[in-house]
Amino acid sequence: MQQTRLDIARIRAARRMIDPGFLDTPLYRCEALEPGLGCAVSIKLGTANPVRSFKARGTEVVASLLAGKGSRAVVCASAGNLGQALAWSGRGRGLDVTVVASRFATAAKLDRIRALGATLELVDGDHELARERAAAIARHDGIRLLEDSLDLETCEGAATIGLELVEAMPSFDAVLIALGGGALATGVGHVVKALAPAAEVICVQPLGAPAMTRSWRSRRVVTTESADTIADGVAGRYPIPVVLDDLLLVADDAVLVQEASIIAGMRMLFDHAGLVVEPSAALGIAAVLEDRDRFAGRHVVTIVCGSNVDVEAYQGWIGTASLSPRRHAP
């Protein structure tokens, strides 16, 4: 494999900086999903931690390094999960954390950022406007700007998921990874290509937020004017060039899935795996649903990357009846 920005030795070192509460999340075969998908399915449950997403693996590394240098503050832009993770990691290390988010972000995520003690600033626009505002705050206050996916620590923190995967399950055919800014995809992809190169690395993005996938297919940055998807965690419009360069080296494929398939994937994970997940976390299942022939008879791993959802929105997506106890015939 050609060299990405990532390094296996640094990834192993990153694992030692991460609070144990975020490590060694469950990895298990979920046979109940398999009849509906036509393939063997294993779940890597990245939500079994204090912030219910994989993002803290990166923020733990960033906060640890900042605290070690005596830094006092950090700011980031977030659709919700990164902000929660940074608030958690910063609180434990005495850092003042500012999070900039769209006021249209999931309310439950914004509430949790506040509850974790971060300063939350809302902008009247999407995530790209939040990124601009966070950069302005960093310049004005002279503090660290954490940029998800661009900052290598976020990628190498996420890559520890890949270490756990290949160490616990050395043989599988493909791993399905939600694709947004690229930290999870490039991190896990790097490890899989380095340590389990026979496995396919397949990135999955919503059809309504296709910028990184279009960029991967074109081998150059492609931006979009808007994003229209319920999967807010992966709804970026401006891919980062160096992240795309890494993705081009580790991804075997990048696919786009429809909103209906994302919702069907969420419903399957609830009905057959007992998991309440946010839309981004169902992208892997959605990819199998849309291309069963491709995965038939194979063993795929899907990374469930987040479970911070607004309850009312979730009920609307998967159907209130699905949340009610089922009555079985005697």
Rank of each mutant, 00 (worst) to 15 (best):
D310Q: 10
M268P: 02
Q258G: 10
D310W: 02
T320P: 03
T320M: 11
V304L: 05
D291I: 00
E278F: 08
V277F: 11
P279M: 00
L256S: 09
S280I: 05
I318T: 12
S261G: 05
L256H: 07
R298D: 07
T302L: 14
M266D: 06
G319K: 09
V309L: 12
Q315W: 04
S280L: 06
Y314V: 06
P279A: 02
C305T: 12
A282V: 01
N308T: 09
A296K: 10
G265C: 04
C305G: 06
A281M: 09
A282R: 00
L256F: 08
V309I: 14
D293E: 15
S280N: 10
M268K: 03
L269C: 08
G319S: 11
S280F: 04
Q315M: 14
F270N: 08
T302H: 08
R294S: 12
T320F: 10
S261D: 15
I285L: 07
R267Y: 05
E312D: 14
E290Q: 15
E259F: 03
A296V: 00
D310G: 12
S307V: 01
M266W: 02
D291L: 00
G319H: 11
F270L: 15
I318V: 15
I263S: 02
G274A: 06
D293F: 06
G274F: 00
E290S: 13
L283M: 03
R294T: 15
A281H: 09
E290T: 13
V309G: 12
M268N: 08
R298Q: 13
I285Y: 04
A287Q: 04
C305A: 10
S280Q: 05
E278Q: 04
I303W: 08
V257I: 08
W317R: 07
R298A: 06
G265L: 02
S307A: 15
G274E: 05
V311Y: 00
H299V: 07
A296L: 03
I262Y: 09
R292N: 02
V309D: 13
W317N: 08
L275A: 07
F270P: 00
I262D: 12
G319P: 11
E312I: 01
I263Y: 01
L289C: 09
S307H: 01
A273D: 11
L283C: 08
Q258Y: 02
D310E: 15
D291F: 00
N308R: 11
N308M: 11
A287L: 05
Q315K: 15
A260T: 13
H272D: 14
R298I: 01
S280V: 10
A264W: 07
G284M: 09
A273R: 07
M266N: 08
H272R: 14
V304M: 03
L289Q: 10
A313V: 08
D291Y: 01
I263W: 00
L283F: 02
E312V: 06
R267C: 05
E278T: 02
D271G: 01
H299I: 07
G265F: 05
M268I: 02
A282E: 04
V277P: 12
I303Y: 05
G316V: 03
D293C: 12
M268V: 01
N308I: 06
T302F: 11
D291P: 02
Q258D: 14
R294D: 11
Q315S: 15
F270E: 13
A282N: 01
E259C: 07
A260R: 09
V276G: 01
F295W: 15
